[in-house]
Each structure stands twice: as structure tokens, then as C-alpha cells.
């Protein structure tokens, strides 16, 4: 394309509100947060007076020696793993079924996908209600259902339970179910879009050669959808790290922090305890974790593009 200096100037000029805006509000503010994480804004006075005493890595030492932060980090890792496994399993299974266009597939697809249109705040409010354990005499939610069908023995504390295996807290199960409920439709839609692009003849040929449904899936569909599956994993992982709304609304940090995650810890440290520098340190750990996932992903998408 022919390109004149004038046109280049207009192009940059039109982009400049965005470049300047995001330059300040994303990169400038991240830089500022890095700065805050190295000073002693762990009380409101220092922050309001703008006293910026450099303390090096003290704030990072604070959070990495905090049991709550470490518990939250492990919770987030388990949450991330089971959330991804659950969303992928359900999403991929449903997309393969729907791709054959069974009767009523359109209605089914809409039912599987509608949670994506709803706020995490609504999801959290409703699922908290469903999982609320109640008491021994007055069971609530699922425990009430279990009682009604004579399975009292299966009642347990759900998200208030402090039991677990090793570092995995069982209380997380309730939050994971709610998150899967919300996001498996996302994986399903991504896979379905990919499946629609696979030529019909390819599947037909395999079928004529006597391949079973499972063989078609594992030998043809899954390998062809590798890139889409990887995208889904990365996007879901980054959502899990940022799942502040769901956890905050549904359970909060829970007894002994059984359902805490760093995003919630950061919010409470910063805005409830006024420990801005500790909060900044937590936020930066989150940013690094998200960056490790997203930066290679973005670089890769661009390489493919050009």
C-alpha cells in the first residue's frame, strides 16, 4: 500500500488517545504499583501524606511469609486445575454431541451457554444459596435435598468445611462447580466453532474405513483442535487467577481461608486493612502469573498472523 508521511501522521494521531490512555492507565499504573510495592504504604497516613520510604522487598517478604497468602495461592492453583479440567471435559463433550445436530440442538446449546451472559455476582449469590450447608437440624440447599431422599450421611459442610487432602481444601469444590457452570459453555462454543470448520468428507471417509465414534474423536477431531484447546486452557487459566468476583461474593475467604485466593486477599489487604504496599505486592504476583500465561500466547498469535 502506498504510504505518505501525512497519512502516517493521521494514523498515529487517530490512535493517540488510545496509546496515551492505555500507556498511562495500564503501563504507567503498573509501574506505579511496582513503586508502591517497594515503599512502606502499609498505613493510611503514609499514603495520604505521600511519604515514600524505600523498603526494598520487605512487602514481598511480608506476603510470602503470610499463611493466608500461601494458602490462597495453593487454593488458586487447585481451583485453576479443576476448573480447567471440568470446563474442558464438559465443554468438549457437549460440543461434539451438538456438532451432530441432534434434535433440539439449538435449545440445548442456548441452555449450556446462557451462564456466560450472567454476572459472577448473580452466579455467586445463587450458588452460595444452593451450597449453603445449614445446620444438623435445619439442613439447607443440597444438604436438604440429600436429607429428603434419605441420604443424610452424605451431608457435609460444603464451602464451610475445613477438611481437605494435603493442600487441597474440599471447600473449594463448591466454588469450582459454580465456575465450571459459568464457563464450560465458553469452551463448548470455541470447540463448536472449530468443529464446524472440519470438512465433512474427512469424517465421512474415516467412518467408511470403519473408525468408531471414539476413534474419530481421539484420532481426528482432538488433534485438529489442539490449537483451540490450548487457547481455551490459557484463557480459562487467566480467568481462574482473576476470579475475584465469584469467590468474594459466593464464599469470601472462608473459615481458615479455605476458599481464599490472592485476588480476594489483595482486595481486603488494600481496601479493608489499608495496607497498600502489601496489596501492591500481591497484585504484582498475580500480574506475573497472568503474564507468564498471556505474553507467550500473544506473541504466538502474532507470529501466526504475519
Amino acid at each position: 500500500m502506498k504510504y505518505k508521511t501525512k497519512e502516517k501522521l493521521i494514523s498515529v494521531g487517530l490512535l493517540s488517545p488510545t496509546i496515551i490512555g492505555l500507556g498511562i492507565f495500564v503501563y504507567g499504573f503498573i509501574w506505579r504499583t511496582i513503586r508502591i510495592s517497594t515503599i512502606d504504604w502499609n498505613n493510611i497516613t503514609n499514603m495520604l501524606r505521600g511519604i515514600e520510604n524505600f523498603v526494598g522487598l520487605d512487602n514481598f517478604r511480608n506476603i510470602f511469609t503470610s499463611t493466608r497468602f500461601i494458602t490462597g495461592l495453593w487454593n488458586n492453583i487447585f481451583f485453576l486445575i479443576f476448573f480447567i479440567i471440568g470446563s474442558l471435559t464438559i465443554g468438549i463433550t457437549l460440543s461434539v454431541f451438538l456438532n451432530d445436530k441432534p434434535k433440539g440442538h439449538f435449545i440445548f446449546q442456548n441452555i449450556y451457554l446462557f451462564p456466560m451472559a450472567i454476572s459472577f455476582v448473580v452466579t455467586g449469590t445463587v450458588w452460595r444459596w444452593i451450597f449453603a450447608p445449614g445446620t444438623e437440624d435445619f439442613p439447607r440447599g443440597i444438604n436438604l435435598l440429600l436429607t429428603n431422599i434419605g441420604l443424610e450421611n452424605l451431608r457435609w459442610g460444603w464451602f464451610t468445611s475445613t477438611e481437605g487432602i494435603g493442600l487441597f481444601n474440599f471447600a473449594l469444590i463448591a466454588v469450582i462447580v459454580a465456575a465450571i457452570w459459568q464457563f464450560s459453555g465458553y469452551t463448548m462454543a470455541m470447540w463448536l466453532a472449530g468443529l464446524r470448520g472440519i470438512p465433512e468428507q474427512l469424517i465421512e471417509a474415516a467412518r467408511i474405513d470403519g473408525a468408531s465414534k471414539w476413534q474419530i474423536f481421539s484420532k481426528i477431531l482432538f488433534p485438529m483442535q489442539k490449537a483451540i484447546t490450548l487457547s481455551a486452557v490459557i484463557l480459562l487459566a487467566h480467568i481462574a487467577l482473576k476470579a475475584f468476583d465469584l469467590v468474594y461474593v459466593m464464599t469470601g475467604s472462608g473459615p481458615r481461608n479455605v476458599t481464599d485466593i490472592p485476588a480476594v486477599f489483595m482486595f481486603e489487604t488494600t481496601f479493608r486493612s489499608n495496607r497498600y504496599s502489601d496489596g501492591a505486592a500481591i497484585a504484582l504476583v498475580l500480574l506475573v502469573l497472568v503474564g507468564v500465561l498471556i505474553i507467550p500466547y500473544l506473541v504466538h498469535s502474532f507470529r501466526e498472523d504475519s
Binding site: 492507565f25 495500564v26 504507567g28 499504573f29 503498573i30 506505579r32 504499583t33 508502591i36 487467577l241 482473576k242 475475584f244 485476588a263 489483595m266 482486595f267 488494600t270 497498600y276 496489596g279 501492591a280 500481591i282 497484585a283 504484582l284 498475580l286 500480574l287 497472568v290
Partner: peptide
């Protein structure tokens, strides 16, 4: 994660 820009 918007936590990383929230205080500024």
C-alpha cells in the same frame, strides 16, 4: 488483573 492498577 486489574488489581495491579487499582491503587494508582
Amino acid at each position: 488483573p486489574y488489581q495491579s492498577i487499582l491503587v494508582p
